[in-house]
Computed example of a mutant assay.
Amino acid sequence: MESQSFTGDANEDLYMLSTPDYFIDTGSYCEKSSVRKFAAYVLPPIYWSVFFLGLFGNGLIVIVYLTYKRLKTMTDTYLINLAIADILFLMTLPFWAISASHEWIFYTIPCKIVNSMYTITVYSGMLLLACISVDRYIAIVQATKAQRYRTRSIILSKLVSLSVWIFAVVLSLPEILFSTVKEGLSFKFCTMSYPIEVSKTLKVIVIALKVTMAFCMPLLVMIFSYALIIPTLIHARSFQKHKALKVIFAILSVFVLSQLPYNSILIVRVLDAANTTVSDCATSQNIDIAYKITQSIAFIHCCLNPFIYVFVGVKFRSDLFKFFSKFSCISESKSSARLKPNIRAKLPSEILETKMGTLSL
């Protein structure tokens, strides 16, 4: 199809479950069937894979915490809240998969719930990652003060977690208010429909908040916190410091690699919405495809959270082994015997692992 000039729809959904065609002032339109065909073939397998893998990993975290653990540290509180946020986010993926394969076959209320739950869990999840990094800084760099206020810290972590959820709900008010179902030429889609008189401004604010609060701010907090933690670990005498450093680099690398491409596309959309940039139809199609691909990559982060934050912990692995032993022929005594050598090997660095949080569960 020959490229033709058009202006993007100001009411385009930031988290669009279907890709609508764009009408041009002249009466012609930018046809997006190729983008929808791409999404129908590529996205559902990704969404369903992320759904089952993420549900398995985060579900194990919640089960093991409830079965064997109490919330003993601030990081414990943040991690259980992070797992819950990831699970709630995963609950939206079946809707995305079905919509990508066909169209939005549900009603307006499910559209509002899916869009708002998505944004609430994205905001809360990213902010909780920032909270975890700050807590690790306090526990490692400010270890003396952290031990002194250990009892109060549990209460504080619960208040912080509650504040994060409330803040995430407030940031998601546009999705709660303006999500609706629209009908295209031959299909229905769940989208954001802003009031015409403020559509451009609201769209810029919504996307800018998403980039700032769900990526830039958490990333800066994580970099700052871990940059202060690394010198302390380097000067530590424990032989486990190298493992702790690897965990830190894994956390930052996974976060950047999974979230940077997606947020880069969002920044392009912010600039386009702010300047009402006129682009050709082919460019718009490419941006839509890039948006869907990078968004899918960003989704994978919730599957990796259990592995980089929890499953590397010696204590958590011990509890996990006990949990699975209940459903096998392995007796409790045998499972304990198998774990003893590993636990004894870690004892010299137990304090460091406790401070690291991700190595202490």
Rank of each mutant, 00 (worst) to 15 (best):
E31A: 09
S133T: 11
V62S: 05
S258M: 08
F187V: 00
E197S: 03
I205S: 05
P45F: 15
T354N: 04
C111E: 08
Y22F: 13
G57K: 11
L162V: 11
K158Y: 15
K69A: 11
A39Y: 02
L156S: 08
S179R: 06
V64K: 04
E2D: 15
I267A: 04
F106H: 00
Q147F: 13
K112L: 15
L185A: 13
N58W: 13
K241H: 11
M74I: 06
R70H: 12
S336W: 11
I265C: 12
M126G: 02
S318H: 04
G313F: 02
F316N: 01
A214T: 10
K112R: 12
L245A: 14
A337M: 10
F299P: 14
P45D: 15
I343W: 04
T212Q: 11
V221Y: 04
K37W: 09
L88Y: 10
A100N: 00
A168S: 14
L60H: 11
I300K: 01
K188T: 02
M16Q: 10
E353M: 00
A85Q: 02
S33D: 10
T108S: 10
I63C: 14
S153D: 09
M126E: 05
F215D: 15
I109F: 09
R136D: 00
K340E: 09
Y149I: 03
C302K: 04
S225R: 14
F327E: 09
D86Y: 06
L162R: 12
T73W: 00
F106L: 06
S336F: 14
C281A: 12
F327G: 12
